[in-house]
Simulated scan of single mutants.
Amino acid sequence: MIEQSKKFSKKAAPERSARMVETICGCKWSLTVFSLLANGIKRPGEMVRCVEGLSTKVLNECLRKNMEFGILEKTIYPELPPRVEYALTPLGEKFLHILDSLEKLQQEMDSKPAQP
């Protein structure tokens, strides 16, 4: 009986999702923006007022990146003065579950002593 050996190819990280996680987690403000949205703060002006050190320019860049990845959606209301609100997309909801899992993993790692 001839034994067949299985050959596996090198496993690489999923390109788009890995880049998305790296970009968003590397952004100083994205996780704060997600927290604001979770607490019902959806308007950019209110976000800037609620977070010390967050400028309008940096917030707009952060929101734009998250919209490009499909995590956030922007709603522009046709009224004067203009009103803009941001919300999580269904993909954004899934992404937040992944971030929550990463946070739990970090807490587990922090609670266990490091092993050599």
Rank of each mutant, 00 (worst) to 15 (best):
M1A: 15
I2W: 15
I2L: 15
I2Y: 15
Q4H: 12
Q4L: 15
A12S: 15
E15W: 13
E15I: 06
R16S: 13
R16T: 14
S17L: 12
A18H: 10
A18I: 08
A18G: 11
R19N: 13
M20Y: 03
E22F: 06
T23W: 06
T23E: 14
C25A: 05
C25D: 07
G26K: 01
G26P: 02
K28T: 01
K28E: 03
W29G: 00
S30M: 03
T32Q: 01
L36D: 05
L37C: 08
A38Y: 01
A38C: 07
I41C: 04
I41K: 00
K42S: 04
K42C: 05
K42G: 02
R43Q: 12
R43S: 12
P44D: 03
E46D: 09
C50L: 10
C50N: 11
V51K: 07
V51G: 05
V51W: 00
E52I: 02
E52Y: 01
G53W: 00
S55D: 03
T56Y: 06
T56K: 14
V58D: 00
E61D: 05
C62D: 01
L63K: 00
N66T: 05
N66E: 10
E68C: 10
G70A: 08
G70C: 09
I71Q: 08
I71T: 04
E73I: 03
E73S: 07
I76Q: 08
Y77C: 11
E79W: 14
P82L: 07
P82K: 10
V84N: 06
E85Y: 06
A87N: 09
A87C: 11
T89A: 07
P90R: 04
P90T: 06
P90F: 10
L91R: 05
G92L: 04
E93D: 13
E93M: 11
K94E: 09
F95W: 05
L96N: 13
L96H: 10
H97L: 14
D100L: 09
D100K: 03
S101V: 06
S101N: 14
S101K: 06
L102P: 12
E103Q: 11
E103T: 02
E103A: 09
K104Q: 08
K104P: 10
Q106M: 14
Q107K: 05
M109V: 02
S111I: 03
K112C: 14
K112L: 12
Q115W: 04
Q115D: 14
P116G: 13
P116H: 11
